[in-house]
Amino acid sequence: MDPVSLSPSIPDVSARRDLALREAAKELEAGFLAEMLKAAGLGKTSESFGGGQGEEQFSSFLRQEQARAMVEGGGIGLAESLYHALKEREND
């Protein structure tokens, strides 16, 4: 989903760019959280009664969506820091 193309109701180019930066920051935080969830063992198949190869292959999708839900719920504040860093860089 490209937030800029999904927001034709926002006439100001600057506001659309800010929205795109914020969404990019959220996706970066979600990616980071998904990797942390993976390192913590979330989605790891159990030794007995596991889902086999299919479960292993699709567990990354589950982790990514759980990470996105965490970000939408406030996350760890990384997205906000990234947004401000990207905004500063854009203004320079």
Rank of each mutant, 00 (worst) to 15 (best):
G51A: 12
P3D: 02
M1N: 14
S7Y: 00
N91Y: 01
E90Y: 11
S60E: 15
I76E: 15
D12H: 07
P8C: 03
S7G: 03
V4S: 12
T45R: 14
G73P: 01
F61W: 13
T45G: 14
E23Q: 05
A40S: 07
E29Y: 05
E88M: 11
I10G: 06
M70Y: 07
G54Y: 13
G75R: 14
S7H: 03
L82N: 04
T45I: 01
E72P: 00
F58S: 15
H84D: 14
S5D: 09
S9G: 15
D12V: 03
E47I: 02
S48Q: 15
M36H: 13
E29F: 01
S46E: 14
E88G: 13
L37H: 04
H84F: 13
D18P: 04
L86Y: 06
A24N: 12
Y83V: 02
F61Q: 15
R17F: 12
R89Y: 13
F49T: 09
K44D: 06
Q57Y: 12
L21R: 15
S81F: 07
A67I: 01
N91E: 14
F49V: 12
S60Y: 08
K38C: 03
A85K: 06
I10E: 14
E47C: 09
L78M: 09
I10S: 04
L82Y: 10
F32R: 05
D2P: 08
E65M: 14
S9W: 15
Q53L: 10
F49E: 07
L6M: 11
L86H: 11
R89F: 13
R68P: 06
E47S: 08
D92Y: 06
Y83K: 01
Q57I: 09
I76F: 08
S48C: 11
V71F: 06
A40W: 08
I10R: 02
F61A: 10
E23N: 02
G50A: 07
L86D: 01
G77T: 00
L62S: 03
E72D: 11
N91A: 11
D92P: 11
F58C: 05
L78E: 11
E27C: 00
S46A: 09
G52T: 11
L6W: 07
V13M: 13
Q53S: 11
Y83F: 10
G73D: 10
S59H: 11
L37G: 10
E29A: 13
A25Q: 02
E56M: 04
E23G: 02
R89Q: 12
E35M: 10
A24K: 06
E72G: 02
L62P: 00
Q64H: 11
L62I: 06
E27I: 03
Q53G: 08
Q66N: 07
E90A: 15
E35K: 09
E90T: 10
D12E: 14
S60H: 09
F32L: 10
L6K: 11
Q66P: 00
F49Y: 15
F49A: 09
L82P: 08
E80D: 10
E56V: 15
E35T: 07
L28S: 01
S9Q: 15
Q57L: 08
A34M: 00
R63I: 03
S60G: 07
A15N: 07
A67V: 00
A85C: 12
K38F: 07
D12R: 08
E35N: 13
F61D: 13
L37E: 01
S9N: 10
S14C: 12
D2E: 01
D92R: 13
E29R: 10
R63M: 02
